[in-house]
Simulated assay, not measured.
Amino acid sequence: MNEESTMTRIEARGLPQKLSGVLRLLGHIPHDLIALVSRISIGAVFWQSGQTKLDGWRVSDNAVYLFQTEYRLPFIDPWLAAHLAAFAEHLFPALLIMGFASRLSALALLGMTLVIEIFVYPDAWPTHGTWAVCFLVIIAGGPGRISIDHFIARHFARTA
């Protein structure tokens, strides 16, 4: 056997071990980091969407027009829908990014995402699915230790 084929076999045996080590390392990514990235990134998406609905400090005529013509939600007046969406797309992302009432905020925005998916853009399910995963990480696992929710919970745990 030549030296080159021996080295190839040694390298091949080491590959599964190296891969296993990398996978083990990836398994140690802390939930706190994952939750923080989820909160900030999905919060920014909805905040920016809310910003497009404003003209200064009021809901723009264009936003109302979109709810009348393109979005056309059932059971709700377009003027009211535009105002509720603009409010929700500012309040819940701000709370989410701060990590305050995080699970509630993620649940509210997940509900909004479902409405968008079902009634407005049903073909955009890959994007909405990505958003839903961010929300589910927060709903199921909590906002992580880098959040106001964590500090409140810690405070009440000490006083109990």
Rank of each mutant, 00 (worst) to 15 (best):
L95G: 04
G111K: 00
S41M: 14
L23D: 12
Y65K: 05
F87P: 01
F100S: 02
E70F: 09
D61K: 09
L23V: 15
L96C: 08
T113V: 03
F46E: 02
I29H: 12
F75S: 00
A106P: 06
P78V: 12
I97L: 07
P93F: 09
L96I: 11
H90R: 03
G111N: 04
E70D: 04
D61C: 05
H90P: 06
R72M: 03
P78R: 12
G56K: 11
D77F: 12
L66H: 06
R103S: 06
D32Q: 06
A108T: 03
V22H: 08
W47P: 01
S20I: 13
I118P: 02
F87H: 01
A106N: 04
I34P: 11
D61A: 13
F119N: 01
F46W: 15
T69V: 12
L19K: 13
I29A: 14
G50T: 05
A106K: 04
S60Q: 06
V22E: 05
R39K: 01
Y71E: 03
M112G: 09
M98I: 14
A101S: 10
G99H: 06
W79P: 05
L91A: 11
I76P: 08
F75E: 00
L95M: 15
G99I: 10
L110V: 08
S38T: 08
L33M: 10
F92S: 00
S105I: 09
D32M: 05
W79I: 12
L36G: 01
F92N: 00
V22K: 10
E89W: 07
V22C: 07
L66W: 13
D32L: 05
L36W: 07
R103M: 10
S105E: 01
L23W: 13
L91I: 14
I97Q: 00
L110A: 09
V59Y: 12
S102K: 04
Q48K: 12
L36V: 08
K53Y: 06
P30Q: 07
L104S: 07
E89V: 12
E89P: 01
L104A: 13
P74Y: 05
F87Y: 09
I34C: 11
L54H: 09
V37H: 00
A86R: 02
R58H: 14
H90V: 04
E117A: 10
L73V: 03
E70V: 08
L66K: 06
I97V: 15
F46P: 02
W57D: 14
R24A: 13
S60N: 04
L26V: 15
T52P: 07
N62P: 03
K53T: 00
P93V: 02
L19S: 13
L110F: 11
D77Q: 12
R72Q: 05
L114Q: 02
Q48A: 11
S60V: 07
I40S: 04
T69I: 06
V22P: 11
W57E: 13
H83Y: 11
P74W: 07
A81S: 05
L96Q: 08
P78I: 12
V37P: 01
L80M: 14
S41L: 15
I97F: 07
E89D: 13
Q48W: 11
Y65F: 12
L96R: 02
G50E: 06
F92Y: 14
V45S: 09
